[in-house]
Amino acid sequence: MDSGFDYWAAKAALDWQIELGADEAIGDAPVDRYALDAARAKPTAPVAAPNAVPVPAAPDDPVAEARRLAAGARDLGGLAAAMEGFEHCALKAGARSFVFCDGNPDARLMIVGEAPGREEDRAGRPFVGRAGQLLDRMLAAIGMARAAPDAAHAVYITNVLPWRPPENRRPERAEIAMFLPFLEAHIALARPEVLVLMGNTPCDALLGRSGITRMRGSWTEVLGVPALPMFHPAFLLRQPQAKREAWADLLDVQARLRGRG
Rank of each mutant, 00 (worst) to 15 (best):
R68A: 14
R68N: 14
P56F: 09
L91G: 08
A95C: 09
A41D: 05
L236D: 13
L79Y: 00
R169C: 04
T44A: 10
R173W: 06
R173F: 10
R137Q: 15
K92S: 01
P229W: 10
P149E: 09
L134F: 10
P181S: 06
F5W: 13
P43E: 00
D28V: 06
R122K: 12
V99D: 08
E245Q: 10
D23K: 11
A70V: 11
A38H: 02
F182V: 13
Q239S: 11
A71N: 06
R256C: 11
P181Q: 04
V196W: 07
R68E: 13
R68Y: 00
M1K: 08
M215L: 15
D23S: 10
M144W: 03
R164L: 14
K42V: 11
L251T: 06
A123G: 06
V63Q: 04
W219T: 03
R108F: 03
M178L: 15
L250Q: 03
P229G: 09
V160D: 01
K11P: 00
L197I: 08
D23T: 15
L257E: 03
E172I: 05
P229M: 05
A52M: 10
D61H: 10
L20F: 01
V194Y: 03
L189I: 09
A174E: 11
A70I: 04
A25W: 10
E175Q: 15
D28A: 13
Q133K: 13
T213N: 04
A48W: 07
A48C: 03
Q239R: 09
L135D: 06
P105M: 12
L79C: 05
V128H: 03
G21E: 04
A82F: 07
E87V: 11
K42P: 02
